[in-house]
Design a protein around this nucleic acid. Structure first.
Lengths: 188, 188
DNA sequence: AGAGCGATGACAGTGACTGCCATCAGCGTA
DNA sequence: TACGCTGATGGCAGTCACTGTCATCGCTCT
């Protein structure tokens, strides 16, 4: 069995997710993940670049949604407002799979290695966001600054969303955090 | 030779720095670093937690300077202004060792693994900064938001500093980037 | 001279990741 | 029906980062 069972990639993701949650990321070996999925270690590395990447399969879709939302936003919007629109869309996507996102975040919170990977995914997101802003005609220092600040707001809102009892929705938290940022920087 | 030569840690840092610059981070083995320093691989791992950490030895001093500056800043300063004072101090410290910092950044820019480590160091910096702000009495969502935004500004300013021909000084770039952020968020 | 201590060496072991080749299922084609 | 092609998988050896353990060395104090 095993060979030619459908959806090898999905089985690997599911097995990794379960094992990381049960006994932690560092305490899980790739061989164990492959075993539970009915595959071999070698095959795991054909589907995922490394042991961490299996948790970040959805990052691409998120980035594409963010970029396309910013790109297609009304040309009359300011850079920060176009960015906000993109972040709201991304937040809504995450909100859809809320339970999965929360479990995933619990796994990541327990491992420094996984946090590193999460941070570079966010940095890649910021770079793509800056690109999208440049294509709207935003000049370069401003584009990078807006993108980095936007991701910072997103990070804080996401943290609040995860910590909260689950009543607040991510898009509202993003909007709220942005308002607080406006208040913060308004002084002087 | 080798054993009991003074400054083993410094020799390891120097050897690693040189080899990473010459042939790149991934193409350098820890055994090669230890060899060049006249030591063994085992000893390398007694001085540094892993192969990447050898490049981030100065991070502690930077964090302490940032935190103490924010903590000791006049109580009348707003959160964002206290943060700015801390970032300016950190920027000045980096500016002192400008050449080293530039070389280091070139090495990091060539390796995704090293970028991951750099990002988590910045995240740790943000967390420490948020702590310092809380001790000034800043409430929690605001403290985190100010810290993350401050680090975002710092990242952009640092990038500009590295890309620039070297005429502009980091503290001025930080101030300038913060001004641009104020303009960005002022709309509406 | 001897005891204690901290730094280093030596060595075996685990686990992530890679390269290479063999194998198998499904598919089209003769 | 037999053949060959293709893509996914298995098997295996190898490298390298990192760890645990114990022996060894130089220094210092008595």
């Amino acid at each position: 069995m095993g060979r030619w069972e459908p959806n090898a990639r999905g089985r690997l993701m599911q097995a990794a997710f379960a094992l990381y949650a049960e006994r932690g990321f560092e305490q899980t070996t790739v061989a164990e993940i492959a075993d539970r999925a009915g595959l071999t270690e070698r095959t795991f590395f054909r589907h995922f670049a490394d042991k961490r990447e299996v948790l970040f399969a959805g990052a691409n879709a998120l980035q594409e949604l963010l970029v396309s939302t910013v790109t297609n936003a009304s040309a009359s919007l300011t850079p920060i407002d176009a960015t906000t629109a993109g972040l709201q869309a991304a937040g809504a996507l995450i909100q859809e799979g809320a339970q999965l996102a929360q479990q995933r975040q619990a796994i990541i919170a327990a491992s420094v290695e996984l946090q590193e990977r999460e941070l570079i995914k966010l940095a890649t997101l910021a770079a793509a966001l800056a690109d999208a802003l440049r294509q709207r005609g935003v000049e370069d220092p401003i584009a990078r600054l807006t993108a980095e600040t936007g991701i910072a707001v997103f990070k804080v809102a996401f943290e609040r969303w995860v910590d909260a009892p689950g009543e607040l929705e991510l898009p509202s938290l993003i909007r709220e955090s942005l308002g607080e940022l406006r208040a913060l920087t308004a002084g002087q």
